[in-house]
């Protein structure tokens, strides 16, 4: 089993990105980076994105597709039929689809026509994985094939993924997409276990390791996306939201994410233009991280060994004491 390279972003590339952010936005960022603050965040400024209406395909999508086009190996000629439920998801013959998330398309742009204060407005919203702060898609993966890296990127290892789609089920936006007929499951028990490999945006983790920017960030002609240290990006999002009297999405959603959308229009209204469909997530404000409810119980599990030891100590002391009293009584007899 080849373990994936954990991308720990080097200081050099890190500063490069930081400088990139500063250059792109004209803002001044702290020159010294605090220890442990090398988690990255991206900002998507919806007041800047124009959906690349003058292009056949938005630049972020084209760039992303170019970078990831060889990611999926050749799909086997006859995809094994899973038993007993026969769901097969094969996108290999529809690789050109760009208006939704597919295993071959990790980012798409939603167009929202919104009427606010009697004014018609068009907002474009690039959608992809949010790289959540505590992503259930990763922590709950039965094989730990999906993992959150120290730099914040949530990355699925296609060599270890069985394509059971559990990550998609627990993601509030159902981001990961399955391609059947590829991956390790083919070599284990293809009919009974697994069903392909899940694919999604990995924040261009390999490029980050080389000190490069994610493809979408680099390609955007409007500089609608920036990436940098989480703290700085959060501050920048606040500033921009204040300036445009706008709104932020991704700060609290699903327990916090590393993708912050800033918009002049409320996400309530944006969400209304979206109908949740496969590969086309909605944008419900305040969507909860469902695992948050299990955390208190999990914390008591962590304290269980201490509970066990304490009970053993107490009971041991008690039974020794009882024995002592008994012998004393006997001696007194």
């Amino acid at each position: 089993m080849e373990s994936p390279k954990i991308s720990k972003i080097s200081r050099r590339s890190f500063l490069q990105i930081t400088a990139g952010v500063a250059a792109l936005t004209g803002m001044s960022l702290p020159t010294t980076v605090q220890a442990g603050s090398d988690t990255l965040s991206t900002l998507i400024d919806l007041s800047l994105c124009d959906g690349c209406v003058d292009r056949e395909t938005p630049a972020c999508i084209s760039s992303c597709r170019g970078i990831n086009k060889h990611k999926i190996p050749k799909v086997v000629d006859s995809i094994p039929e899973p038993w007993p439920r026969k769901t097969i998801e094969d996108w290999s013959k529809k690789q050109g689809v760009t208006n939704r998330l597919t295993p071959y398309n990790f980012i798409y742009v939603h167009k929202a026509e919104i009427e606010t204060a009697g004014r018609q407005q068009t907002i474009f919203i690039p959608r992809r994985c949010m790289h959540c702060d505590n992503p259930a898609c990763a922590t709950i993966c039965p094989f730990s094939a999906n993992h959150k890296n120290e730099n914040g990127a949530v990355v699925i290892n296609p060599k270890q993924c069985f394509g059971g789609a559990k990550c998609k089920d627990v993601c509030p936006w159902e981001i990961p997409q399955r391609q059947s007929g590829v991956g390790i499951y083919l070599h284990v028990l293809p009919g009974f276990m697994g069903n392909g490999v899940m694919y999604k945006c990995d924040l261009c983790n390999n490029r980050l390791a080389e000190g490069k920017l994610p493809g979408c960030v680099e390609a955007c002609p409007r500089k609608a996306m920036i990436i940098g240290p989480k703290k700085a990006i959060e501050a920048e999002a606040q500033t921009r939201a204040r300036q445009m009297k706008g709104y932020i999405y991704g700060k609290k959603e699903n327990g916090g994410t590393s993708t912050l959308y800033v918009s002049p229009v409320s996400f309530e209204l944006i969400n209304k233009t979206m109908t949740k469909k496969p590969g086309q997530p909605d944008m419900k404000p305040d969507v909860k991280r469902r695992m948050v409810g299990t955390d208190p119980l999990g914390k008591t599990v962590l304290s269980a060994p201490v509970l066990g030891l304490a009970a053993a100590g107490a009971l041991g002391w008690f039974s020794r004491r009882k024995k002592q009293v008994k012998t004393e009584e006997k001696d007194n007899d």
């Binding site: 259930a136 709950i140 559990k166 089920d169 627990v170 409810g293 269980a304 066990g308 053993a312």
Partner: peptide
Amino acid sequence: FITSLYIHYAAALVFTAVGIFHLAY
């Protein structure tokens, strides 16, 4: 999966505490 996790944690609490108790006691 989240419902199962609740039950898994609840059972793990008993399993872990009693397992460690058994060893220690």
